[in-house]
Simulated scan of single mutants.
Amino acid sequence: MGSAALFLRLVKASLLGQARYPASALMLTLGQFLATGIEVIAVWALFHRFGDVQGWTLGEVAVFYGLANCMFAIADALGRGFDVLGTEFLRTGAFDRLLLRPRPLALQLMGHDFRVSRLGRLMQGVAVLAFGTVQAGVAWTPEAVAIALFALAGGVALFLGILVLQGTLAFWTVESLEIAHVLTYGGVQAAQYPLALYARWFRRVLTFIVPLACVAYYPVLAILGKADPLGAPGWAGMVSPLAGFVFLVAASVAWRFGLRHYASTGS
């Protein structure tokens, strides 16, 4: 069986397991939808109280918000195995069983627990993106659609890379540190707003260290047809999502380094 077929079978097995408890799966999905919906209310309250923020309208920010949440929802569903690596694999010794299987380790972790509940965040992101499209008057030309899909792929790669780094830390810490959520959930929060609203030092972090701006800010500017107040060229949004794939490659290198230093549980 090829890697792709094996991954699909693992995902199918995970989904079938959750389907045995349909009420639970539905409630978890609804919970994800409502929990992230509270964030939408907070964004709406901000613009309702103060109006446009430095020239950015509610509709434009909704496009940022919707795209960022779609990216994270997909990456979170794919990278669940890395998120729980410390608690479910390293501490119990179950990670050794994965190492003995003649299949790619990353693929086994990605197919370990494909959560249907992440569909709640994805649906909420799509709904907000649709709202932003109407409010901001986005014209979904073939070029805009291509940029959005490229940005989505780059964003998924970036957030998946962050989850891989989180799992890599567990080789030394045994447990996945909560501080790693600063880059996952905190990264989603940061990508929900235009880069121009942040301080200069934070803009550099979001561009050159954890390139969230490259997968969200610049592509959305191209989709909106809006000039960057920071002076970036108009073509930046067409190529900047590549940074997400570069980040994932760098995270994979770190993962292999951590894997070489894994010494089992000793049990």
Score class of each variant (00 low, 15 high):
219 P>Q: 11
174 V>D: 15
157 A>C: 11
141 T>E: 14
251 A>D: 06
114 F>G: 02
191 A>I: 02
92 T>L: 13
118 R>L: 12
59 G>K: 04
81 G>F: 09
170 A>E: 01
2 G>Q: 12
85 L>A: 10
37 G>E: 07
171 F>K: 03
172 W>G: 08
48 H>M: 12
152 L>C: 05
65 Y>W: 15
109 L>P: 00
201 W>M: 11
107 L>F: 05
189 Q>I: 08
194 P>Q: 07
125 G>Q: 12
110 M>E: 00
37 G>T: 04
183 L>E: 09
19 A>K: 07
28 L>W: 13
146 A>E: 01
56 W>C: 04
140 W>M: 11
229 P>S: 09
63 V>A: 03
121 R>Q: 13
217 Y>H: 13
261 H>V: 03
115 R>K: 15
75 A>Q: 07
131 F>A: 13
236 A>C: 10
7 F>Q: 00
216 A>H: 06
86 G>I: 05
202 F>C: 07
38 I>F: 15
23 A>E: 12
228 D>S: 11
129 L>Y: 05
68 A>I: 07
256 R>D: 09
151 A>I: 04
136 A>V: 01
255 W>G: 04
13 A>P: 00
122 L>G: 08
212 L>W: 15
265 T>H: 10
9 R>A: 15
175 E>P: 00
45 A>D: 12
148 A>H: 06
54 Q>D: 15
264 S>D: 12
54 Q>L: 15
88 E>T: 02
145 V>K: 09
149 L>N: 01
46 L>Q: 11
20 R>D: 13
242 L>N: 04
16 L>R: 09
17 G>F: 14
141 T>R: 12
42 A>L: 11
17 G>Q: 13
239 V>D: 11
3 S>V: 09
112 H>P: 00
185 Y>G: 10
58 L>G: 00
6 L>M: 13
71 M>G: 06
264 S>Y: 14
20 R>Y: 03
